[in-house]
Design a protein around this nucleic acid. Structure first.
Length: 637
DNA sequence: TTTAGGG
DNA sequence: CCCTAAA
């Protein structure tokens, strides 16, 4: 019998008579995420939804304004609208110190259409088409990578969250889709030195992420953020400064009537969210000099307002902002000079190691749309902006690397392997900052209050926003080797080791993203996890795509062993047997992995990608696959 | 909820 | 990995 041949008999495997018996019922994650959407929904709605989610974050986090708590409570609603056309009329500059309010912005979704399409601006009043914000921001990046913003002015040092609270809340709903990119840093020098760090002076830092809040990082960078309006496309201007008018261009399909489209959209959203997430927009790229396109998020007012509507439906003005942030150019102290954000240099010649020198001068931020009533104060507007910015940052960031437009996802690959060598020209490298976090939007949210709040003049001295530099970036500078992964370290591995009996192969997950990503720690090893701060928080947003976590050799080994024993039709059992403690591997994942293993085993080694799986395991895969396939057939008969 | 497969 | 039809 086959069994014999395989040696299964020795193990006492039983023949699976019923391969498909489900064992336990543990569910994993639900698969269906988007169902909510109505068919009818148009893209706008979707966007709105996303935006709402994003906003929600803000709400949570934001809280009290420094100035007065009371005020804080009031909220204004800010909505973003999609008004496209609006050229960036005004720029609002936030001055560093000025006290200010925070403004919440809504990210625009890149997705499409939404906002952009609509071209009308509303009231002319509106006004802020584009905001240019210049501020010094300190962002902190929590360990997680989330950024904290500090507001200086306010007296307080606020605890992190507080800073804004007062601000109007923005309801965000959908944010998912887009990642928000913030420009956070100004420049990163490869050398690793962060440009000037600003200490948080007066300002207190407020971590964006509300949850984590605690993190404060040490180094802060200051940067100037400019928002320019760009569309998603904006190509990049290196200068970034140009505000572009946004027209509806970005939008593509406005209305998706079909199912298919919707689906697509949804998935795109999801993806976007994942990647960018918070922002909603697609990730932005950060390019050094070149601008990349900033993504925009749009929040659609419709949904958002739902709740809000409640009270006052104020008239909001819409603003569109796009921003690009060029982070503090000032900061660049050292670097200054070059316009490019990134440069590859050969400096390495020096020797030692070949280091790739990269400079990230600025990051682009997606467009933000804010709606505020005409009678709102400037302070409130500022606050709203701040809010938005904070919310964006709260989520935690993920850094992505694009080489010639292609996203390099293999975190284990060395720069050199990826084509980023000291001796090459690196004019095609882009970095993306994506917001990781997802939160649920509080639904209705606060809009009205915000309004009130607007009224008040609270101007708090938030004046400056400082952005701390995220570690990753810093790292980048330093070691050319892997720009992106600061924390990386092995948090994942650690986790694994803990949970999984199997040893993880050496995988070095360097990817920053991983580091950032929340990993659900097993209860037991929390400590290990700590390293990875993520904000994952509970639910990720709906749309988020899970982070890619390649199977390690150890996992493959465990999978193969389990399948050998249980067969190929009992994934739930396999999960329980070998991956019970590994939360992020669902039985569907195991099934999928098995599928790929079978495929991998059947192709030539040269065609295989990723970390090589020992041939011995692949042989077992084929054997087990053959054996169990036969068993299933017999069972059928 | 699981399986099983296509995408 | 995601998404879903079936079971």
């Amino acid at each position: 019998m086959v069994r014999k041949r395989l040696g299964y008999s020795s193990r006492g495997h039983r023949i699976p008579t019923m391969p498909r018996v489900p064992n336990s019922a543990r569910g994993k994650r639900s698969t269906r995420r988007k169902k909510d959407e109505n068919d009818d929904m148009c893209a706008m709605d979707l966007l709105a939804t996303v935006a709402g989610k994003l906003l929600a974050d803000q709400d949570n986090s934001s809280s009290v304004p420094n100035t007065s708590a009371a005020k804080a409570k009031k909220r204004k609603s800010v909505k973003e609208e999609h008004f496209d056309e609006i050229p960036p009329l005004k720029n609002v500059a936030m001055e560093k110190d000025v006290g200010s309010g925070s403004v919440s912005a809504f990210p625009r979704q890149a997705k499409n259409c939404l906002a952009e399409n609509s071209s009308t601006r509303n009231g002319a009043d509106t006004v802020l088409e584009s905001l240019t914000v210049k501020s010094n921001m300190l962002a902190k990046i929590p360990e997680c990578g989330s950024y904290g913003i500090h507001h200086a002015g306010s007296s307080s040092s606020a605890e992190p969250e507080q800073v804004h609270q007062a601000e109007p809340k923005v309801s965000r709903r959908q944010a998912d889709g887009h990642p928000v990119a913030y420009g956070i840093f100004n420049s990163v020098d490869v050398d690793g030195k962060p440009p000037a760090l600003v200490s948080s002076d007066s300002s207190s830092c407020v971590p964006l992420s509300s949850h984590d809040k605690e993190h404060q990082t040490s180094s802060l960078y200051r940067g100037v953020v400019q928002y320019t309006a760009d569309r998603e496309d904006d190509e990049n201007s290196s200068g970034c400064t140009h505000p572009s008018t946004i027209e509806s261009k970005g939008c593509k399909p406005q209305y998706l009537g079909n199912h298919r489209i919707r689906k697509l959209l949804a998935s795109k959203v999801r993806k976007a969210a994942r990647n960018k997430i918070c922002g909603g927009i697609p990730s932005k790229k950060i390019c050094g000099g070149l601008s990349k396109k900033g993504s925009k998020l749009n929040l659609c007012g419709k949904k958002m307002s739902t709740t809000h509507q409640k009270v006052q439906r104020m008239i909001f003005k819409k603003k569109k902002l796009t921003h690009r942030t060029s982070f503090a150019k000032e900061m660049l102290t050292e670097a200054s000079g070059t316009s490019f954000a990134m440069e590859g240099q050969n400096k390495s010649c020096e020797a030692e190691n070949y280091h790739v020198k990269l400079r990230i001068k600025s990051f682009n931020i997606p467009e933000l749309f804010i709606k505020v009533p005409e009678n709102a104060t400037i302070g409130s507007l500022k606050r709203a902006v701040m809010d938005v910015v904070n919310s964006i940052m709260e989520g935690g960031l993920r850094v992505g690397v694009l080489l010639q437009g292609k996203d390099i996802q293999d975190d284990n690959k060395t720069l050199c392997q990826a084509g980023i060598c000291h001796d090459k020209k690196l004019n095609n490298i882009d970095f993306t900052l994506e917001c990781e976090r997802e939160r649920e939007p509080p639904s209705g949210v606060i809009i009205q209050e915000q309004m009130d709040f607007l009224t008040t003049d609270m101007v708090e001295p938030l004046a400056r926003m400082k952005c701390e530099e995220p570690f990753p970036e810093a790292d980048v500078g330093d070691d050319s080797q892997q720009p992106r992964a600061p924390y990386r370290s092995r948090s994942l591995s650690d986790l694994y080791s803990v949970h999984c009996p199997v040893q993880m192969a050496s995988q070095d997950t360097t990817a920053s993203s991983q580091a950032i990503v929340p990993v659900s720690p097993a209860p037991s090893d929390v400590g290990a996890l700590a390293i990875v701060p993520l904000c994952k928080s509970k639910g990720s947003e709906v749309g988020q795509r899970r982070m890619r976590r390649p199977f390690t050799v150890g996992e493959v080994e465990a999978l193969v062993g389990a399948v050998e024993q249980l067969g190929t039709g009992r994934w739930r059992a396999v999960k329980t047997l070998a991956f019970d403690s590994i939360d992020h591997r669902t039985y569907v994942d195991l099934k999928d992995k098995w599928k790929t293993l079978v495929h991998t085993a059947s192709i030539s080694p040269q065609q295989r990608r990723g970390q090589p799986v020992p041939q011995e395991l692949l042989d077992r895969v084929l054997l087990a696959q053959a054996y169990w396939s036969q068993q299933q057939q017999q069972a059928r008969l």
